[in-house]
Amino acid sequence: MEKIIHRADSRGYANHDWLKSHHSFSFANYYDPNRIHFGALRVLNDDFIKGGMGFGAHPHDNMEIVSIILDGGMEHRDNTGRQAVIRRNDVQVMSAGTGIMHSEFNASKTEDANMLQIWVFPKERNVTPRYDQRTFDPTARENALQVVISPDAADDALHLNQDAWFSLGKFDAGQQIDISSKVPGIGSYLFLISGEIKVADEILHTRDAIGLSDYNKITVDILKPAEFLLIDIPMLN
């Protein structure tokens, strides 16, 4: 088994007043040659956006983009005329493919919003741009892993242009959960949204993360009530 640890206080940080963003991987003005990506996982930004503020229209291409709202809501607009508000318990996926233009603004004029924005390298390039969004029942992730993104059509989940699984879990203290490598060549990146857990002999606290590869199964011990995002992702060559 191979593992990497990303402590919350080791992340890149940008403070633009209206936006406070923590970067798990190299992004914008933050560069660390040891933290470019984890397999096909390229970006995991933990963004706090002031009320009434947001990201103006900007382009993307050949990237899979996932938005997970942790608090508040974000209004999405794009050059196809699509408009939607993403709120807590919503997940949005966007295949940028041949190219799209979109904007994201805090849906509230007064309350802050917190979102995870995640970029994944695509399996196929230059596909037709695509959006999808779904609200997931939070009770389904209580002391369980709720799959929200999957390449398996049998799962009631969104899908990306990549062989990747995203799962959310919310656990009481004292629980244990086993996580397993999906298939050969798939690694797991666990981002602890809140709480305290023990995994692979490491104690993780709020906003810490661990990446695991070349493993079969490992147990996660919930030391304090915890919520986390688990990303199973191709490790690439």
Score class of each variant (00 low, 15 high):
residue 113 A to Y: 03
residue 123 K to E: 15
residue 37 H to G: 01
residue 82 R to V: 03
residue 105 F to R: 07
residue 115 M to V: 14
residue 215 Y to W: 06
residue 194 S to V: 12
residue 28 A to S: 15
residue 4 I to D: 03
residue 200 A to Y: 07
residue 33 P to V: 11
residue 195 G to K: 10
residue 171 F to H: 03
residue 140 A to S: 10
residue 105 F to H: 13
residue 171 F to G: 04
residue 137 D to P: 03
residue 134 R to K: 15
residue 120 V to M: 12
residue 44 L to G: 01
residue 70 L to Q: 12
residue 234 P to A: 04
residue 220 V to A: 04
residue 152 D to E: 09
residue 81 G to C: 00
residue 210 I to Q: 04
residue 19 L to G: 12
residue 116 L to Y: 10
residue 20 K to G: 01
residue 127 V to R: 13
residue 110 T to H: 11
residue 40 A to P: 03
residue 72 G to Q: 07
residue 230 L to E: 08
residue 211 G to I: 02
residue 129 P to I: 05
residue 219 T to K: 12
residue 50 K to M: 15
residue 76 H to K: 07
residue 209 A to W: 00
residue 35 R to T: 00
residue 18 W to D: 03
residue 132 D to I: 06
residue 216 N to F: 08
residue 38 F to L: 07
residue 114 N to D: 03
residue 70 L to I: 12
residue 54 G to C: 08
residue 84 A to V: 11
residue 179 I to D: 02
residue 19 L to V: 04
residue 228 F to I: 12
residue 19 L to E: 04
residue 144 A to G: 09
residue 170 K to P: 00
residue 98 T to Y: 01
residue 36 I to S: 07
residue 105 F to T: 07
residue 188 S to D: 09
residue 222 I to N: 01
residue 113 A to M: 12
residue 35 R to Q: 11
residue 223 L to Q: 09
residue 133 Q to F: 06
residue 124 E to G: 00
residue 32 D to M: 08
residue 41 L to I: 08
residue 20 K to T: 03
residue 60 H to S: 09
residue 69 I to P: 02
residue 114 N to T: 05
residue 103 S to L: 02
residue 221 D to Q: 11
residue 164 A to D: 02
residue 70 L to V: 05
residue 74 M to R: 00
residue 93 V to L: 00
residue 38 F to T: 05
residue 189 Y to G: 08
residue 83 Q to V: 14
residue 117 Q to F: 06
residue 215 Y to V: 01
residue 20 K to C: 00
residue 49 I to V: 15
residue 117 Q to T: 01
residue 124 E to L: 14
residue 127 V to S: 07
residue 66 V to P: 01
residue 153 A to D: 10
residue 178 D to M: 03
residue 200 A to W: 04
residue 225 P to W: 09
residue 34 N to C: 05
residue 91 V to I: 14
residue 233 I to H: 02
residue 186 I to D: 03
residue 68 I to K: 09
residue 209 A to Y: 01
residue 107 A to P: 04
residue 134 R to L: 09
residue 118 I to R: 11
residue 160 L to C: 05
residue 25 F to L: 09
residue 106 N to K: 02
residue 194 S to Q: 15
residue 17 D to C: 05
residue 228 F to E: 08
residue 194 S to P: 03
residue 195 G to T: 08
residue 20 K to H: 00
residue 112 D to I: 13
residue 222 I to G: 05
residue 199 V to M: 02
residue 64 E to V: 13
residue 166 F to H: 02
residue 5 I to F: 14
residue 156 D to L: 09
residue 96 A to E: 05
residue 194 S to Y: 10
residue 124 E to H: 14
residue 99 G to M: 02
residue 133 Q to M: 13
residue 100 I to W: 01
residue 27 F to S: 06
residue 116 L to I: 09
residue 60 H to N: 02
residue 40 A to S: 15
residue 28 A to M: 13
residue 141 R to D: 01
residue 203 I to H: 06
residue 158 L to V: 13
residue 72 G to R: 05
residue 42 R to S: 04
residue 229 L to P: 00
residue 169 G to Q: 13
residue 236 L to K: 13
residue 217 K to S: 14
residue 229 L to E: 02
residue 178 D to F: 01
residue 26 S to T: 06
residue 162 Q to G: 09
residue 107 A to D: 09
